[in-house]
Amino acid sequence: MTASLTNALLVMAILAIGVYLVAIINRAWANALGHSGAGNPFTAPFYSAASLWVAPANTTEAPDAMAWHLAPVLYLTLAAMGLALVPWSQNLVPVDLTTGIVLWGALEPLATVVIFLHGWSANAHLSMLGAYRYVSLGLSYLLVSMFVLIGVALPAESLQFSAVVESQAGLWNVIRQPLGLPLFLLVGLGISFWGPLNFADSNDLAGGTSSESSGRARLVWQAGRAVMLVAFSAIGATAFLGGWLGPVLPGFVWMILKTMVVLAMALLLGQLIPRFSPDRFLTIAWVLLLPLAFVDLVWAGLEALP
C-alpha cells in the first residue's frame, strides 16, 4: 500500500514538473525565435497559470454539462495514466503492467473520445467543428501509433515497457527501427494537437474545442495537453532511445535527459511548422505514414527473426 502511494505521489510530481517543463521549453523556444512577449521562461508559467486559475468560469447556452465539465479532467487523467506507465529506471516503474503497451494503445482512442466530447459538449459551432475535425483525423494517427509500438514489442517479446527497455541493451530501437521515433513523435503532436497538427484547437476556429471555455477548465485542458506531450516524449524515449540505459549516470537521469530531448524537439516543431490542411494531412497519413508504419513493422519483424 505504501508502495502504491509512493508511486502515485511520484506520478503527481512528474505531472506537475512536466507541465512546468513544457511551459519553460516552449517559452524558451519562443524567445529564441524572436517572440518578445513570451516573458521570463521560469516565472511566466506561474503567472499565466495563476491568471487562468483566478479567471471567472463561464458557461454556454445549453451545454452538455457533465461532458463539458468532465472532459478537461478526463483528458488530464488519461495523460497522467500514460505517465504512470513510464519506467523511469530499472526499479522505478509506477505501474509495470505486462500489457503496458496495450494500455497505452487504449489511452490514445480514449483521449480521442474525450477531445471530441470537449468540443461537442459546449453546444457551439466552432468548437464542434474542431471536435469533428479532430475525430476524422484521429483514426489515422491511432493506427500508425499501434503499428510502431508493436514494432518495439517484437524484439522485446513482451508488451511490458520495462522489457522493451531491456531489449535495447545491445542496440537502441531508434537505430534498429529508424522509422519508429519520427512516426511516434508525429502521433504525439497529433494526440496533444500541437503545432502543425493542431486541428482541434486551431486559430482558424478561434480556439476550436476550447474556444468556449475559460478559467480553470481551460487551465486543466492546457495542462492535460502538456502532460500528454510529456507522456509521449517519455514513452518515445522508453521505446526508442533505450529508456534508462546509459553509461556513468544513474538510470533515471538518462531517462529524464532523453525525455527532455524528445520533448524539446516536439515543442520546436510545434512552434516552427505551420498547420497542414486537414485534407492534405489525411492523405499523407493514409498514403504515406501508414505504409511507412507497415514498413517499420515488417522491418522490426525481419530484424527480430532469430
Binding site: L97, T99, V102, L103, G105, A106, E108, P109, L110, T112, V113, F116, V135, G138, L139, L142
Partner: peptide, 13 residues
C-alpha cells in the same frame, strides 16, 4: 485492456 481501446474506437466511430 483490449476492450478499452476496441470500444473507444468503436463507439467514437
Amino acid at each position: 485492456v483490449a476492450l478499452f481501446f476496441m470500444m473507444a474506437v468503436e463507439m467514437m466511430v
